[in-house]
Design a protein around this nucleic acid. Sequence first.
DNA 1: CTGAAAGCGCTTACAG
DNA 2: CTGAAAGCGCTTACAG
Lengths: 333, 333
Amino acid sequence: MSTIKDVAEAAGVSIATVSRALHGLPRVSEATRQRVLAAAAELRYVASPSAASLASGQTNAIGVVAPFVNRWYFAAIVHSAEERLRMAGYDLLLYSLGTDAHERRRAFSGTLLRKRVDGVLVLGLHPTAEEAAALSAVGGPVAIVGADVPGWASVRIDDADAARCAVRHLLGLGHRRIGFIGGADPLHTAMPADRRTGYRAELAAVGLPDTSGLEAVGGFTVGGGYAAAVRLLALPDPPTALFAASDEMAMGAVQAARRAGFRVPEDVSVIGIDDHEMAELMDLTTVAQPVVAQGVLAAEMILTALTDPERPLPAVKVPTELVVRGTTGPAPG
Amino acid sequence: MSTIKDVAEAAGVSIATVSRALHGLPRVSEATRQRVLAAAAELRYVASPSAASLASGQTNAIGVVAPFVNRWYFAAIVHSAEERLRMAGYDLLLYSLGTDAHERRRAFSGTLLRKRVDGVLVLGLHPTAEEAAALSAVGGPVAIVGADVPGWASVRIDDADAARCAVRHLLGLGHRRIGFIGGADPLHTAMPADRRTGYRAELAAVGLPDTSGLEAVGGFTVGGGYAAAVRLLALPDPPTALFAASDEMAMGAVQAARRAGFRVPEDVSVIGIDDHEMAELMDLTTVAQPVVAQGVLAAEMILTALTDPERPLPAVKVPTELVVRGTTGPAPG
DNA sequence: CTGAAAGCGCTTACAG
DNA sequence: CTGAAAGCGCTTACAG
């Protein structure tokens, strides 16, 4: 492995000049620059990131903290953010937490991130004030997707709004008994509470404030959504529509309804939130959120903050959109 | 941010002793070690990874090269490998290539990885001999999932075998006109060819060597599988069964069949490979492959190679298993 | 435009 | 058991 010294010798200049030439800094003559570039290419020189970091104080890496990478929402955002960050020359360090509280503590304490990344991208987690402070102390800019935290850049949808939109759609179809399948996420994902709030608010607005018995926990998985729907549909007076706080839970609910002998949407309507990649396939009505855009936007917020630390960090809400497909229809009777 | 010097002063020892104590090396008295640990905790000291790497020559990071992270197979493997590697104290650097040939070249050339990681995990790609040589030149051990490369550790399923198993299931149900929906992946994923080979071989073995006109390209996406199925089912003499080289394509095929007025499985059977997380929900018959196990196994191969560079690198094939669900049934007529 | 030199914060033989 | 010191490979003022 060649070092900067080898390149310097080959080009007949000092290592300082090699460094400048390779970084495209001014105050290097064109002739020298060409000689250096040629020598570097010839020797297949790659600068040592460790040495560069140590000397410059920058790591050229961004940490991504997410509860999972193997769920549609997170995978899509990681993918789009990675693409944007790599374009800008940054590496991506992945920290997926799973459901382990200990891992979460480690990640947010900064032990894992400190001195290792220039900035942090947090996905779909709702940090406590303490955690937020700890992560901020890591140093670089932090951007969060799916929630907002004072002092951080953020990009998210309006969860309460999205939920109200879904419920409004069902109300418009004549439904009055509308069940909710929500989260109860051990990792404090931001959305469950807000989406439930929206659900309740929209029903209260039309004089249906009593949702007791109509709410079930789905844990944001297909299986959880399935189980929750089974429970709600087994009620003596079952709901005629189910609103799930995510498409994955909604898909589980559709399947549960069909297996229990309900026709969808004739006997029971189902709506989700996301517009998951499989939603069209399952003909699922949903409130779509733009994931690629959120990932790219968050990445760009970090990049901007990195080049211009003075600029205030933006908090953006991206719009959602009702996508009507085949799992919702007029209330029966 | 405190440095090793701060800890040394606080504990009243040299930085060499701090380093030893913190790494749990021998030749440090218990009393000293405790004093150092206390001082480090007090100062919230975190060692600089850059400095440590530069001095030790190890990065404590593993690079993961994958074409995508937002597809079930890759996301699941990344997730499980990450968990295992982090347990061992390694960071994960993510390089997702997308479909960009230029990105692929960069990743495999080693420019991105050299001096940056101790080992590399390659997922679902079939490197050319040239690319393999370039990646090997990066230095550390390389493990590959979903293919095998001489000189690398590998873990995969037997793709031809899995395909034959799927086709055998269909033959056993009396099907004779069996369509194939395969890959044509711009990134040279390993599997398409092998799975097609298995499909052809199994048919040839029962005297049905002519598959011309029965093969279609699905690109490993739901939409691609849908389009491929539309084409095959529009044939004058359409197949009575479809074998898709992945569950995502199979799901698309099921939907396409239903929308075209075919009952599944009465009119047409569909089988995939994977046991995708949504496969049960869609009641899809498939040949299951263990993804979590493959990710963990590959991670462990790298860890072993890192601690014991002498040991020969294993090439493991993990078993697959036919999972019969509701999308396959007896051939009509 | 270019170079000599300090310094980034560690690890690791080498002495003792 | 402990410390002084060299060295890892860069970047970046500072001179010239």
